[in-house]
Design a protein around this nucleic acid. Structure first.
Lengths: 228, 228
DNA sequence: CTATGGTTCTTGGTATACCATACACCAGAG
DNA sequence: CTCTGGTGTATGGTATACCAAGAACCATAG
């Protein structure tokens, strides 16, 4: 099946300037440690517009969207500020996460295929309790992936959308989270239990395990993470 | 404590044009039966801008926000369309609602004061099983209020914000929901049980009752509501 | 030196003009 | 009559100029 068709035109990326500005800004904020003491949290429309090479209009629309998502806060005649979530807000977000992921787990026990669950199983097996200490850096990403995978199995796109935004914010404070080895080991065990419950199609147990697992993270953040 | 101060100036309402346009548009869409067969679902920026007496810029920002919330869909060079949620989307929304409200109920058993719960009790007592049939119209509103009250008691403002948007969409299809008397009666009983569980501070039971109650609505919509 | 009043500059908000493209309509060829 | 090609128009996207309000700075009076 060779290419008999002429496929030109991946030129302009196809996206609107607004969409591109949005992605660029979001990526920039993501890759920035906004909780560092010397972080520059103030943005300037005109400055950004020049650096991006687009006018203020699409840039403003992108910023307005980020404002609505809670990533930045626009204050009339004062400036645009990257938002540092308060501890209370982060805790609320983790609570919502717990509610939605546990519902997703519930749905997964009913709708996920055997292959779906097998994939999840593979994800968990990558980290045995012994190895997790050595790969702490990787684990943090794999951890998020595991949770996103469960949410995916719930096949409720609204849950997926909402939690994506939540993960974004939680990721930002990850650097302030002390992932001790004990917590990581416990996490691996939890994950194995969750997968087992899903495979057993035990709806109530899967829901409970996921909820408790995430609420334990909430508890940990409440007690050990410095914010505000 | 008489007025010794001069308080002029409640003139311009203080809100930005964007904010006012947003509220006006949202109210307009809310009060419109978008599921009617002859509903005019297309909006025109220039037309709206003239009718509101503002330029396209703040109007576009308001529309962009509505787009992000899923109330309208903006298609480049085609038009702006009021969104009719598909049945699948509505079902997903009710599922998210169930997840969040059941978590709120869980939180309420831990954080709500006795007075809070007394207020909830009053709300429920307004509708006995016998009277609900006669007041079917009112009940629909009171029903939403009851659920919002529980969510309020969870004291998690993120849950409140998300569910507010969900209620907006669910309200829109309410007209297509056949509220038979039996369902309403069952609903009243459910509500009483939920309040009882909250007052008993029975976390698990409160969560379960709320979840099951809302998922029953989901089931009802899935089976009896015509959409798409 | 301090307090007050004003001037200027910064910055988000708004208005407007222009651009680019999807769609509809129409003319002409077959 | 039908199909094709072009042309016009409607509409969201983008650029730009101006507005208004707040904050910082400065001058001046006490």
């Amino acid at each position: 099946m060779a290419d008999t068709q002429l496929k030109i035109a991946p030129i302009g990326e196809g996206l609107s300037l607004k969409a591109r500005a949005y992605e660029a800004l979001k990526a920039a904020i993501t890759n920035m440690n906004i909780y560092a003491d010397d972080a520059e949290l103030r943005l300037d429309e005109r400055d950004l517009s020049q650096r991006f090479g687009v006018s203020r209009t699409p840039l403003r629309e992108a910023l307005a969207q980020l404002d609505q998502e809670g990533l930045v806060k626009i204050v009339a005649r004062r400036g645009i500020f990257i938002v540092r979530k308060t501890k209370a807000e982060v805790l609320d977000m983790i609570t919502v996460w717990a509610a939605l992921e546990s519902m997703a787990a519930r749905l997964a026990t009913k709708h996920a295929s055997a292959e779906d669950l097998a994939g999840l199983h593979t994800l968990v097996d990558q980290f045995s309790q012994d190895k997790v200490a050595a790969k702490m850096g990787e684990y943090s990403d794999a951890n998020i992936k595991f949770h996103q995978a469960i949410i995916g199995l719930g096949k409720n796109s609204l849950i997926t959308d909402i939690t994506d935004t939540l993960f974004f914010h939680v990721r930002a404070i990850r650097q302030r989270t002390i992932f001790e080895q004990d917590r990581a080991k416990r996490s691996v065990i939890d994950h194995k239990d969750i997968v087992a419950a899903l495979e057993a199609r035990d709806t109530e147990r899967a829901e409970r395990l996921v909820r408790e697992h995430t609420l334990r993270l909430r508890e940990h953040v409440e007690r050990f993470v410095a914010l505000d």
